[in-house]
Structures are given as structure tokens and as C-alpha cells.
Design a protein around this nucleic acid. Structure first.
Lengths: 168, 168
DNA sequence: GAAATATACTAGGACATCCAAGCGTTCGGA
DNA sequence: TCCGAACGCTTGGATGTCCTAGTATATTTC
């Protein structure tokens, strides 16, 4: 989408902030902007790996989640909560996964409101293959050092907890 | 969108990875997933603050960028490169900002292909007010400690550089 | 037990991002 | 000088996310 810039645009932004008298918040601004940009880069990498499988990250996450559920099935609201996305996003993902025959919707045995998402065997197989690809091509080559990974997990974990993601 | 979960879903995912024999990449997977989720939380906060101004993060970023340009104007391709988004995303943002009279498009004086985006005085005023709000309500209360901020800037900066964002 | 409240999912709409194509302008080599 | 290649922007399409509202099913309350 573009060749490398001669200078780091986020570092420039940080300098601009300082120059305008906002030095107090310049560093957090830079850190937050860097997180936004890093997410963008990682997402592009992940989607690039998943494309050959006909998957997007959103759909992969759902498949992976189901593959770890004992029965291979989960209520949609449970999936929404665990993936931390809006229920309508799950509806959207399930629509497409179902069309691809990777999951099926089935009624909850006791609660008429609830719909279960169930992995098909094709879905399970594809999830496994996609995971292997991601492990090899993205997670295994993140470019983050071991210490930095530990630090990220801790710092971002604290942040997510403070943001109300989980109690623990 | 949901009440706090009893347990950290990313930590669970990491355990699942380890349990399936992917311990080698479990930690980077967790770190990357945490970055994705953190971005989602931060974006929601930012958009919440910008909503009263009738802005989204994408449009705010463009306004802020223009406000730091000496002349208050930039070619669209320059904006695309600095914001590191696809040119069509800039077209989209400019369309809406122009409709809101916050920027205007003007032809480049010498290159007939290029379009300049120029801040209107309303645009400049709004950018300033929005920045103040973000500084107070988001960047000034990020929840990240000073040392963690420095660490994030360094680690993510290295990552972005390795990803080809900039040379420097 | 019936009415009010809460929960689960889906439909429609607003935005953002990217890709593929198309149209015009500019550059560069023969 | 001229024509092909490169560049800049826009349009149209596919996805994903969220919000608001609507429908159906449970649960609570009186």
C-alpha cells in the first residue's frame, strides 16, 4: 500500500504534541497510536494467511473458539461474550460460515431463545489447518522478543482487566 | 456490550494452545490477540469522545494531520502515506469532512493529477477542540504506567519498522 | 397465573477498510 | 516528439463492526 516512509509518523506526531504544549500526554498518545497501527499490520498479515482458506480473522476466531469447546458447539451469546464482539457480528460470521458449510445452527434443547453454533467436520478440519498456518506464518514469526511478549501480555492484560473485560 | 467475564479469554486461549502442543507459539499468539483486543477497546473509547464532535477516529486523524501541516493543506496521496491507510479510505474520509465543511478539495497548482485537502477555519477549530477532549479523556487517562508507555513505544516502534512502515 | 421485565437473535443502516478497475495526467525512453 | 508506463484519485463491491429496533421466548413479580 506504500513504500516505507523516511521517518516514523508516530514519532513525528509525538513531537508535534510536545511542541504544542501537550507534552504531558504526548507519550501515551504515541503508545496508543502505535497500538492502533500495530493492530492494522497484524490483521493484514493474519488475513493474508487465512485468505487461501477462504477465511477472515473474524470467522477464524469463531471456528477456533468452537474447536476448543468440548462438544464443538456453543450458544451464540456465549461466543459473542468470549470473542468480545457485538452479537450482530456473530450473526454475520455465522451466516457466512454456515453458507460455507463449516458450522450449522441448531436450536438449544431447553431454551427456545438460544441458538447453538456447531462445528461441522469440514469446519473442524479447516480450523486445524488454518491454525497450523497461523502458528507457522504469524505467531511463530511475530518479530517480538520473548521478553517483550511477556511484557505485552502483562501490560495489555492489566489494561483489559481495568477496562472491564474480565474479573479473574 | 457485555459484563466482565469471570476469566481472561486470552489467557484461556493461551492455555488451549499449550494443551494442544503449540506451546512454542502460545505466548506470541496471546500477545497478538491482546493487541487486537486492546485496539478494539481504545478505538471504542476514542470514538465515544469524538462522537459529540460529529467525528470518527479516521476523520479526526485526517483533521489532526492537516492541522500540523504548515499550510494546513496536504495532497491526498501524502495523507494516505502518512496515515498509512489505503487511498480509498482517504477519499472516503475527505468526502465526509468536505460535506461537513471541515475541509475543502483544491487542485494542485502544478500537478493535474493531485488534489490538495485544505483545512477550513471551522475544521481547524474543531480539530483543536477534539484534540483537547482526547488529551483529557483518553490519552491523559490511558491507564498505562509511564514505564509501560515507554516500553510500548519502543517495542511497537521496532515492530512497525521491521514491518516496513518507515526507514529512519 | 398474568403482566412486566429481561434475554437471545436478527434485520436494516451507518462507517471504515481493503481490493480491483477505470479515467485522466505526467514522465521517460526510443 | 510520442507512446507506453507510472501515478493520483474515484467508483463499485466485499467484509467487518457497531447501534437501534423488532420478534420470540424466559423469567420475575405481584
Amino acid at each position: 500500500m506504500g513504500s516505507p516512509l523516511p521517518r516514523d509518523p508516530i514519532a513525528d506526531a509525538q513531537r508535534n504534541w510536545e511542541r504544542h504544549g501537550w507534552g504531558e500526554v504526548a507519550a501515551p498518545m504515541a503508545a496508543i497510536t502505535a497500538i492502533m497501527r500495530t493492530q492494522q499490520i497484524l490483521l493484514a498479515r493474519i488475513e493474508g494467511v487465512l485468505k487461501p482458506f477462504g477465511l477472515t480473522f473474524a470467522r477464524y476466531e469463531l471456528l477456533a473458539l468452537l474447536s476448543f469447546a468440548r462438544s464443538g458447539a456453543l450458544p451464540m451469546n456465549k461466543a459473542s461474550a468470549l470473542l468480545q464482539v457485538h452479537p450482530t457480528s456473530v450473526t454475520n460470521a455465522v451466516d457466512r460460515l454456515e453458507k460455507a458449510a463449516l458450522v450449522v445452527r441448531s436450536p438449544h434443547p431447553t431454551d427456545g431463545r438460544t441458538t447453538l453454533i456447531e462445528l461441522t467436520s469440514e469446519g473442524r478440519t479447516l480450523a486445524k489447518r488454518a491454525t497450523t498456518a497461523l502458528n507457522n506464518e504469524v505467531f511463530g514469526q511475530s518479530g517480538f522478543g520473548n521478553e517483550d511478549v511477556e511484557h505485552l501480555i502483562r501490560v495489555l492484560g492489566d489494561f483489559r482487566k481495568a477496562a472491564g473485560d474480565f474479573t479473574d
